[in-house]
Amino acid sequence: MEQAQVEEFKKILESQLEQLLQEAGKTVSEMTDEGGNFPDPTDRASLESDRNFELRIRDRERRLIMKIRDALARIENGTFGTCECCEEPIGAARLKARPVTELCIDCKTEQERKEKIG
């Protein structure tokens, strides 16, 4: 992969990381600011449901943050864009669709097939 392409992916990943970290910060401040007293059980249940939903989203984003950091580390050590299974180059279209990917489409398809079976 050309260095210019790697730099483009690095910028994309850094931008995604910054955006996710900002959203996480907003969530923390919003949850600590919400201290309302809800005597109505329906209002309290609605608030708890909303918080649980928000926390599930943030947990998914936390895992994506870890994948982004791993991808940035692969850029730094020169292994970005190489499949961790077969060590072949990962297609540019796949990287554009999912820049945090560690597997080429063939290896990912095989992994999913095995997961479905077992």
Results as ranks from 00 to 15, higher is better:
19 Q>K: 13
79 T>P: 08
65 I>G: 03
19 Q>S: 12
31 M>W: 13
30 E>I: 05
72 L>C: 10
74 R>H: 11
69 R>L: 09
17 L>K: 01
65 I>T: 12
55 L>Q: 15
18 E>D: 12
38 F>G: 06
76 E>A: 14
37 N>A: 08
26 K>L: 10
15 S>F: 06
68 I>V: 09
67 K>S: 14
76 E>S: 14
70 D>G: 12
46 S>D: 02
7 E>A: 14
34 E>Y: 08
15 S>A: 13
6 V>F: 09
66 M>E: 15
10 K>P: 11
43 D>K: 02
50 D>V: 06
39 P>L: 02
15 S>T: 14
42 T>G: 01
17 L>S: 06
71 A>N: 03
49 S>G: 11
41 P>L: 04
48 E>L: 02
41 P>A: 05
6 V>G: 10
19 Q>E: 12
62 R>H: 15
53 F>Q: 07
30 E>V: 02
29 S>T: 03
13 L>E: 09
71 A>I: 05
57 I>P: 00
13 L>V: 08
6 V>S: 12
46 S>V: 05
52 N>Y: 03
40 D>K: 04
30 E>R: 03
75 I>Y: 05
63 R>T: 11
67 K>W: 08
64 L>V: 12
51 R>E: 06
10 K>C: 11
31 M>V: 08
59 D>T: 14
58 R>D: 09
42 T>N: 09
52 N>C: 02
16 Q>I: 11
21 L>N: 10
17 L>H: 01
22 Q>D: 00
30 E>Y: 04
34 E>Q: 13
75 I>P: 02
44 R>W: 01
30 E>G: 00
57 I>T: 08
45 A>R: 08
48 E>K: 03
15 S>M: 02
28 V>S: 03
31 M>N: 13
15 S>Y: 11
41 P>D: 00
12 I>A: 15
44 R>S: 00
20 L>S: 01
54 E>N: 04
56 R>A: 06
11 K>F: 07
68 I>S: 01
35 G>Y: 00
80 F>S: 09
41 P>M: 02
68 I>E: 01
49 S>N: 09
81 G>D: 14
9 F>S: 08
77 N>C: 07
9 F>L: 11
73 A>K: 11
61 E>A: 09
57 I>S: 05
22 Q>M: 09
77 N>P: 06
61 E>K: 10
44 R>Q: 00
15 S>H: 13
12 I>N: 15
77 N>K: 12
18 E>H: 11
15 S>K: 10
77 N>T: 07
66 M>I: 13
79 T>V: 13
39 P>I: 03
8 E>L: 14
